[in-house]
Design a protein around this nucleic acid. Structure first.
Lengths: 231, 231
DNA sequence: TGTACTATTCTTGTATACAAAGTGCAAACA
DNA sequence: TGTTTGCACTTTGTATACAAGAATAGTACA
């Protein structure tokens, strides 16, 4: 039996609304669906080849995420995404991330640490090839796994809510090889700090790491804005 | 013309899904709909005298709030609400609330401060009567207005997401008149600090205020758990 | 030429209908 | 007696239908 085939049914059984949700989310964050655009249900339902019902359920989730704005009897409009937002998001994320650090240090098992290192080693080859496209989701996965070690479900949920926005920008931003290598080195160091249960070192490096990420992200937004102006 | 009547159309024009959302949310938080309960769509649609469509949209929002859990093809189940959750929520809320303080101090106008004082004076009479039932939403409104002065939309949204849970518990918890008076005095002091642009004093008092609120809330949860055990 | 009113069209809000997946029970068979 | 298979029932997932409100365009009148 082919294992790939056995996975297929699970993937297909995902509700359409969830797929619609992610497609729209990606579209909004990537800028494909521009800010200010009115999402007319029938139009988008037709475009996605689905009916209005699951589309509307996806919209309700996006509404809750703050990506779209609902106006009574007028439907939804894509919210603008400003530098101000990036600042706020990073401020929030930073504050929340800091809350998880003691719990991570406390709860991380040797198996967790080994697993994180496996992930990083897996990225080494791609780093050398400079395959940023493939690297970006792995980096994200690494960070998420690290943060998840705190096992504080609500904080994680809150971080996740903020993080989605940023990740794609960061993916664009981390083009400079210099930053790429620096970040990769820091990932190893972060794991080392966890292993040594060195909260203070962990905290400082994480703070720097997030700070760098914020800078990259702000640059990416600025660049995109310049790009849009020229069109 | 009666002003209450003129509000009616606005209230009536609110989508049913929003009403359903709030009814369910209240039901879950108050414990009326117990944790672990499976929400069968047809049952609840009938109970609320609505169709499944708006109910499902309400469920998608609750899902995003983390109040219910979705299992593929099995529908949704009400999530449990533990002491652990209260701790986490307060940790998050505290961290986020602290982020708003500098902006509040910076951006508050004399009009804002006057408006806050009007609210507090309006509460004085109820305080003397000891009408806690009426006081609770006003207290909540005061706090929300104060925090909103930061004008950081995303942080506010994040706080709002956490806060909903707590408010109702606090409403139960703040029964002791002692705490009530103490809190009311502190509200006046908070406004004074804002007026004086005294960030450090503001920060310290706010921290204490949240700390007290947390203690109250934990007590309320413990009491409710005891109450449930005896049934 | 401009304004006001009406009719049409567009779009959302809600209900209902139908399809498909899952669950549980009962009967048949080992 | 235990296990398996099949069938009926329950419940979710999605599509479609209909109602009502909002916007817009066109016409009539000043």
């Amino acid at each position: 039996m082919n294992s790939a085939v056995s996975f297929q049914p699970m993937l297909e059984s995902r509700p359409i609304r969830d797929i619609a949700y992610e497609v729209l989310k990606h579209g909004i964050i990537s800028g494909e669906i521009p800010a200010g655009e009115r999402i007319v249900e029938t139009v988008y339902a037709a475009r996605l080849h689905i009916s209005r019902t699951p589309l509307r359920e996806a919209l309700r989730k996006l509404e809750r995420d703050g990506l779209i704005e609902y106006v009574a009897r007028r439907g939804v409009v894509v919210r603008a995404f400003h530098l101000e937002d990036v600042n706020e998001i990073y401020t929030i994320r930073n504050a929340l991330e800091m809350l998880t650090l003691p719990a991570i240090i406390e709860k991380a098992t040797p198996e967790d640490i080994a697993s994180l290192r496996v992930k990083l080693h897996g990225m080494d080859a791609l780093m050398r090839k400079g395959d940023i496209e493939a690297l970006s989701p792995l980096t994200r996965a690494f960070h998420w796994q690290l943060t998840s070690l705190c096992r504080q479900q609500r904080i994680l949920r809150a971080i996740e809510g903020q993080d989605e926005f940023i990740t794609r920008f960061s993916a664009i931003a981390i083009r400079q090889e210099k930053h790429l290598w620096e970040a990769h080195q820091e990932h190893y160091q972060l794991v080392d700090y966890v292993e040594k249960r060195d909260l203070e070192g962990f905290r400082q490096l994480m703070q720097k790491h997030i700070e760098d990420s914020k800078r990259n992200c702000l640059e990416a937004v600025r660049e995109r804005r310049e790009g849009l102006k020229q069109e």
